[in-house]
Simulated scan of single mutants.
Amino acid sequence: MRRAALLAAALAATMPVAATAKAPAKPTLEQRVQRLEDEDAIRHIFIAYAAALDGKNADAYVALFAKNGQWINGSIVRKGPAEIHALIDGMFHNTPAGYVNKDSFELTFHPDIKVDGDRATSRSEHVLFRRHMDGSGLPQAVLFGRYEDEFIRENGVWKILKRVDIPTIPTPEEWGRIMRARQQQPAQPPAGGAQ
């Protein structure tokens, strides 16, 4: 009997604590709308990023990065607008004026965006398509990889703070060899001519 009384007293002592513990506060409607707007703005960065790559537009590409932004691919690290611009200029060398890309396009998909105030992270996958080498004109997937991103709200606008570009098929080493070989080739006019 004494044991049962002690157990009942112990349970009673914990009940007020449990009863007074508060559930975590739910976000307000304003906070939930802000999160949706932030996620939407970050999704638009993915769209603008692919458009800048597809259009070989180095200025539009660099404008997506924060003033202290970084682009990383394996051992290649570029920091700040000048270094990132030089990297992209190297990739887009000899692009003719009025260029319209009819040879390649990038798709970015499955972004998992997590917003925390003026910072955010995301992980997404991407695939690069080019015209098939056999001359059929059919699209051929030539690169699959993922992006691991950090974003920052800079002067009220979301920007890429750090983009880690991780090619998986082919490997970073294989992709580096492909890109170096491509840069050695003379520029060719886009299929169908510029419009």
Rank of each mutant, 00 (worst) to 15 (best):
S136W: 02
S136E: 03
S136F: 02
S136A: 06
G137K: 07
L138Q: 13
P139Y: 00
P139A: 06
P139G: 08
Q140C: 04
Q140K: 09
Q140H: 09
Q140G: 01
Q140F: 10
A141L: 03
A141N: 06
A141V: 11
V142R: 03
V142W: 01
V142T: 13
V142A: 04
L143E: 09
F144V: 14
F144L: 14
F144C: 14
F144N: 02
F144H: 07
G145Q: 09
R146W: 13
Y147G: 11
Y147D: 12
Y147Q: 14
Y147S: 10
E148A: 15
E148L: 15
D149E: 10
D149C: 12
E150M: 08
F151V: 03
F151T: 00
F151Q: 02
I152A: 14
I152E: 12
I152Q: 05
I152D: 00
I152G: 02
R153D: 00
R153E: 02
R153F: 02
R153Q: 05
E154S: 13
E154T: 08
E154Q: 12
E154A: 06
E154P: 06
N155D: 15
N155F: 07
N155C: 11
N155Y: 06
G156N: 09
G156I: 08
V157T: 09
V157W: 01
V157N: 07
V157D: 06
W158K: 08
W158C: 14
W158V: 09
W158F: 13
K159W: 08
K159M: 09
I160Q: 07
I160V: 15
L161H: 12
K162Q: 14
K162I: 10
K162D: 02
R163Y: 11
R163K: 14
R163P: 03
V164R: 08
V164E: 11
V164C: 05
D165Y: 07
D165E: 10
I166L: 07
I166R: 03
I166K: 03
P167G: 05
P167K: 04
P167W: 02
P167F: 01
P167C: 11
T168N: 05
I169N: 09
I169Q: 12
I169K: 11
P170R: 07
P170C: 10
P170W: 06
P170S: 07
T171Y: 04
T171G: 12
P172S: 15
P172V: 15
P172H: 11
E173Y: 06
E174M: 08
E174T: 09
E174A: 15
W175Y: 10
G176A: 14
G176E: 05
G176N: 13
R177T: 14
R177Y: 09
I178G: 03
M179D: 06
M179F: 03
M179Q: 09
M179R: 15
M179H: 02
M179I: 14
R180I: 10
R180G: 10
A181W: 01
A181M: 06
A181T: 05
R182C: 04
R182T: 03
R182G: 04
Q183G: 04
Q183L: 14
Q183C: 02
Q183I: 03
Q184I: 03
Q185L: 15
Q185S: 06
Q185I: 03
Q185C: 00
Q185H: 00
P186I: 06
P186W: 07
P186E: 06
P186D: 04
Q188C: 00
Q188L: 08
P189H: 04
P189T: 02
P189D: 09
P189A: 02
P190R: 02
P190M: 01
P190A: 01
P190K: 01
P190G: 00
A191W: 06
A191C: 00
